[in-house]
Amino acid sequence: MKLLVCISHVPDTTSKINFSEGDTKFDTNGVQYVINPNDEFGLTRAMWFKEKQNATVDVISVGGAETEPTLRKALAIGADAAIRINAEAIDGHTVATYLAAAAKEGSYDLIIAGRESIDYNGGMVPGMLAAMIDANFVTNCISLEIDGTNATAVREIDGGKETVSTALPLVIGGQKGLVEESDLRIPNMRGIMMARKKPLTVVEPTIEASETHSVSFEKPAPRGAVKLVEAENIDELINLLHNEAKVI
């Protein structure tokens, strides 16, 4: 089984978000980058496919040279090879187009992406990719088992979950549940040493593919100070929620 894991390189969850150049660019100053949390669950699930079902695992990212440490980290965790598509991730469509080209080139059986990235929060790349390569697609995926070319996935739906029967080739949008938090792997020394020798191929894209772009950014308006209510005075809270906030 040939497996591809899509890795989005995103600001660490503790990052303060700022913008530069007249609020038109994300300010990368002082920002630490990590593997998108949803992709980290997918990468660990991929390691299990490698160990238990002999899968080969490639990782891929669309981005500039600054994303390479994130790909190296994925290699150190255990991926076999990495691909970086040397292009700016202008929008979901751009990323999906480049991933689709690489997916066809590598004829992967299973592609694991994340439900959404925590920077742009598009929730669009895996679905677009699946449609472009005409693969099956399951998003919000919290469990995945492969048997031959058959796949059984569990998908979170509003208010519950459902079990889905599908087949390879398959693209999933994964999230926590694929593996648990405690299953996540941290690169060890041996992994880091081995990662240095693993191939990281840089591919130059040939086409322009964006359909949308960010014009400018805004930060939420600063909020007023909290109104404190005495613990003995619950009636006042109910009054405020009813008459002032009008939410009950």
Partner: peptide, 20 residues
């Protein structure tokens, strides 16, 4: 055609142009 969307998990808004 420009819409305002949340980004960075609600830490910011992004004004996005759709050009198709």
């Amino acid at each position: 055609f420009v819409v305002k969307r949340t980004a960075f998990t609600n830490k910011a808004f992004c004004n996005t142009e759709i050009s198709t």
